[in-house]
């Protein structure tokens, strides 16, 4: 997958937030990582993560936006969309 520099910077910011709530080494926090299975984040921790993301990036998220997200790439996609940053396909 190709991604823009802005998209990369969003991923880096998200990875730093995940490192605060997950116990797995930061090197394992990839775009493909699954929140529950790979990063050991239960539903509560996932909600906390998305709340942190909402605040730190000013995304103005609604709960309908965030429920059902299962992977890091899902979070990155949500954030870039809300920020108006297009991911190159």
């Amino acid at each position: 997958m190709h991604s823009t520099t802005s998209d990369d910077s969003v991923f880096i910011a998200i990875r730093a937030l995940i490192a605060q709530v997950s116990t797995v080494p930061q090197g394992l926090i990839t775009r493909e990582a699954r929140l529950r299975e790979d990063l050991a984040l239960d539903s509560v921790a996932s909600m906390e993560l998305l709340s942190m993301l909402d605040e730190s990036l000013g995304l103005e998220l609604e709960m309908e936006d965030v429920l059902g997200i299962e992977t890091v790439s899902g979070i990155v996609g949500l954030a870039t969309t809300r920020l108006g940053i297009g991911s190159a396909q």
Binding site: D54, E55, M63
Partner: peptide
């Protein structure tokens, strides 16, 4: 310190 604040922020 760590909780889901999205509903309250809105």
């Amino acid at each position: 310190a760590r909780t889901n604040l999205i509903p309250l922020r809105r």
